[in-house]
């Protein structure tokens, strides 16, 4: 095995991202969920800057800084404010059957690894082997959105999915063009603000942030 040291650090970051994705999947407390999301953003920023350093891609430094600012600081702060205002800070969600969810997650990881194997063989980047992990994090966040019924964890799942996509872009092609990245970053920020307003609307309409109420079409 002869991967350069920077490649080893990137692999380590990828492994940590996968670990955090599973921790999010099994986390019952909303507050810890948001802290995990902030940690995910931080690791993403570290790995992006290491990729930038080892591949001499200057624009990746900007992406790393943007990631750090937006995903490790701004979005967690907004989420913290939101759950304080919505008074759901100490909410504990009753997740049923965590082991089954985790096993489903494991199956997704195997699927993602197999799916990514032919793609990463063709890629020539230093990060090619982490593509499988990036896809696995996307799928795991997706699974998290499916298994949650409350609004805030679903949004955290959505943001985590975006993190996974960003990581996939960095590992497959050294990131997207700067314009696209700026656009996505702005989209996420604005999306977050709009969803925050939605939370208040949902709560005034249903007296709860549980989205299962929205599945009923008739009032009874």
């Amino acid at each position: 095995m002869n991967i350069p040291f920077s490649g080893q650090i990137i692999n380590m970051c990828a492994a940590l991202l996968l670990l955090i994705a599973f921790a999010m999947l099994s986390q019952r407390r909303i507050l810890s969920l948001i802290n995990l999301f902030a940690l995910q953003g931080l690791i993403l920023a570290v790995s992006t800057s290491v990729v930038a350093y080892s591949s001499h891609q200057v624009h990746l430094y900007y992406s790393a800084a943007l990631t750090l600012l937006l995903k490790a600081v701004a979005l967690p702060l907004i989420l913290h404010r939101l759950i304080r205002k919505l008074n759901v800070k100490w909410d504990v969600e009753t997740l049923f059957n965590i082991p089954t969810t985790m096993l489903a997650g494991l199956a997704l990881v195997v699927f993602a690894f197999n799916l990514a194997a032919p793609i990463s063989q063709m890629a020539g980047t230093i990060t090619k082997s982490t593509l499988g992990i990036a896809m696995a994090s996307v799928l795991l966040s997706f699974l998290m959105m499916i298994t949650r019924s409350k609004a805030v964890p679903q949004v955290v799942g959505f943001l985590a999915m975006e993190n996974g996509l960003f990581f996939a872009a960095t590992s497959a092609t050294y990131g997207m063009p700067m314009v696209v990245e700026l656009g996505i970053a702005l989209d996420v920020l604005v999306g977050m603000l709009i969803l925050g307003i939605f939370f208040f609307q949902i709560r005034t309409a249903f007296d709860s942030l549980d989205l299962e109420h929205m599945e009923k079409l008739k009032e009874d």
Partner: peptide, 11 residues
Amino acid sequence: LLTHFLLETAA
């Protein structure tokens, strides 16, 4: 075990 096969044997 899975990460080992993905990350550490590919190179």
